[in-house]
Design a protein around this nucleic acid. Structure first.
Lengths: 208, 208
DNA sequence: GGTCTCAGTGTACGCTTGTGCACTGAAACG
DNA sequence: CGTTTCAGTGCACAAGCGTACACTGAGACC
């Protein structure tokens, strides 16, 4: 048994992480609103009042969770961009599925609180998601055939894809992972949905 | 001042409705999970223990709210179907906007609890929404050019449209109603999104 | 090595919560 | 008209909550 002595801030950082991890564990099938400060502290193994050394309120912790989960989401986007491929949709779906499976609790938290959370948390997610859609719009503009789309149309198209991806994430989180068959069905459906959107976009005449 | 004497069950029905209405009022910017039984009773003007004469738990009240809100949603679908028009998308968007505006609290509740609610409530909404998508799939199958789509593809297409409509409802609920300009922008974007999907569908080759 | 800092402790407080129980009084009923 | 039913009352209680406050003890710092 190593006694590994660590710096004070390192130790503080670990407790903070324990609070975040513990919260996500408790949030597996409930909402942030139904979580009490004492419960979170208990799960993290500290006394309730020590909670305040890290967050000034549960809402504050909520916002921190959003930031952490969003880092996961951004990593996903970066991965999707890097993945070299001839089929943008296929590789996007692959990345999406991998990342959701590898970070279920983050995605579960984001989708659950996006509309069900407290105003503060909701706003934090909305802001980040808006940013995501903007980036996607920029990406779309680089596709041949969409170069002369109006900014407004690019944004609209990006929003549509985000909406579709959101519903795909939700379907993935709801399907039973042990039923590989069902999961494949969800993934296949996702692929076809994105293809339909892409097909529609390729036919669309943007009028600025 | 009329003393209007009413039957006992009539009076019970009214209190029940007061509980439902009061809840929706309180749910304007919070989630069901953050609502206490006492708070709801207080809002409805009855003593906490009397709550149990109508619902056996808050979860039970939640399911009742789902049923009420779903009646609104079904009315919307019926309206959209009846509306005679040459442009199915235009008339669908019109109906959607009207119904959302006329029943904001119901739609707000449904979207908020669809993913953020307790398992019971979530399941109740999921079931109803699945039914809605099935009906929409049947409707889609009647369109020329989609008659020979496979059942699977029809379902996939319907799910995609439901996802798009859900995000439209959410955008409508988030936009400031006093900024008519913003609202029109949301509606216009909605129209274009649905058109892109329709365009994509018209190009899709269903392979059963 | 002595002092300072501060993450985490323990106790204590006033509130709110869900729910059990005995009740009341008006409508429903025979 | 006397009896029954039952929606709504009022009180009580234990449990959980957020948070204030004074504390401890180990790492940081000069």
């Amino acid at each position: 048994m190593t006694v590994e002595s660590v710096s004070r801030q390192e130790r503080k950082q670990r407790t903070r992480q324990a609070l975040l991890d513990g919260s996500l564990r408790l949030l597996a099938d409930r909402s942030l609103a139904s979580l009490s400060l004492r419960e979170v502290a208990r799960e993290a193994g500290i006394v309730p009042t020590a909670f305040y050394r890290h967050f000034e309120s549960m809402d504050d912790l909520g916002v921190a969770l959003v930031e952490e989960a969003m880092r996961t989401l951004r990593r996903m986007i970066r991965d999707a961009r890097r993945r070299p491929s001839t089929d943008a949709i296929e590789s996007s779906v692959q990345t999406l599925v991998e990342q959701v499976r590898a970070n279920e609790s983050h995605f579960r938290f984001l989708t659950r609180e996006r509309y069900g959370g407290t105003p503060d948390v909701r706003r934090a997610i909305a802001t980040e998601l808006r940013l995501f859609a903007s980036e996607l719009a920029t990406d779309l503009g680089r596709f041949p055939g969409m170069a002369q789309w109006s900014a407004d149309d690019l944004r609209m198209g990006a929003d549509l894809m985000v909406a579709a991806m959101l519903s795909i994430v939700l379907a993935l989180l709801e399907v039973d992972r042990n039923h590989a068959e069902d999961e494949l069905e969800v993934i296949d459906s996702a692929r076809r949905q994105l293809r339909i959107i892409a097909l529609g976009m390729s036919q669309w005449r943007s009028t600025p």
